[in-house]
Design a protein around this nucleic acid. Structure first.
Lengths: 160, 160
DNA sequence: CTGTTTAGTTCCTTGAGGGAACTTACATAA
DNA sequence: TTATGTAAGTTCCCTCAAGGAACTAAACAG
């Protein structure tokens, strides 16, 4: 299909898409986040082709988002786990969940609920400002050029 | 390519991906968010094929995320604008920006900066709990089944 | 009447995704 | 010892979506 590479653009959105923008990648991340960590489990749960699953897992491991680890040798068995970098990507999933719940959930309501450890309440995420702590939505900011405009991104992550 | 449909899954992440999961869609949204709103502008800025751009814009309008409006008749000219639904999707972009800045920005730093209207500071978004107001990250929640598990999503949005 | 701008549409080629069968390495049951 | 099962892939072929470039339509400018 010959896909345009997003990784070289001077844009953090494009660079993030380069990592998890391929179809299936966010759903693979979600599954591993909720404890579906093995190849066959993932394949069955998602209904993804084994070929594509292999490619995606390899890519996500290479990008340092997932870690492939042996949980048994003899027989050799592996599972996939989130790295710190990957867990932070799951914050993104929570924001996607919020939008999907608001705009795509039918009469029945949201497919899943989220309980916050700190307060025990069923709730959802709201983006806040790291500086003042108040809510910060897309309509509440000005975008201005940063120091890294017009430059290449980080070469490649060496490990996790 | 025969792509699996995500829109029918009982998962708000999959349903959100159904709307903006195709390659280019988030970048189109970003461009419109920052004021690049016309067909040729978008095509040049993104380097996207005109064919795919046409398809994506039509899809996003159908999904109620964008609005196609005439800014001149005679000659007939159109531009694309975010709906409320679309602007809320841009919250997602800000979270992607944050991750991209943290994990993919090189020595030069982030390509763009964001100033919060309320406080005037250059900052970034942090997901907070809608119930208690404290930070709420992917590691801070339990996922439990919701009422809409095992059901179909909303039929289709009629308008914006 | 020719050229330009905006907003697409059409056509062809390539290559990514789907699907199913096949492979390897081991464990267990008969 | 052979058959059966399982986990984790790999290989193969086919279809259809993305890229790219050329073409079209409607209006305006000179």
């Amino acid at each position: 299909m010959q896909r345009t590479r997003f990784g070289d653009m001077a844009c953090s959105i494009a660079r993030t898409l380069d990592v998890i923008g391929e179809p299936w990648s966010p759903l693979i991340l979600r599954d591993i986040y909720v404890g579906i960590t093995r190849f066959d489990q993932l394949q069955r749960d998602l209904g993804i082709s084994r070929k594509v699953l292999t490619e995606r897992l390899k890519w996500l491991v290479d990008k340092g988002v997932l870690e492939r680890r042996e949980y048994s040798r003899r027989p050799p068995r592996h599972e996939y786990a989130l790295t710190a970098k990957g867990l932070e990507l799951c914050d993104l999933l929570l924001v996607m969940v919020r939008w999907g719940d608001r705009w795509t959930a039918g009469e029945a309501g949201p497919p899943a609920l989220y309980r916050h450890h700190a307060c025990g309440e069923i709730s959802h995420v709201v983006p806040h400002c790291s500086a003042c702590g108040r809510p910060m939505r897309a309509g509440d900011v000005d975008v201005i050029p940063g120091p890294g405009a017009e430059t290449e991104p980080k070469p490649e992550p060496s490990g996790a």
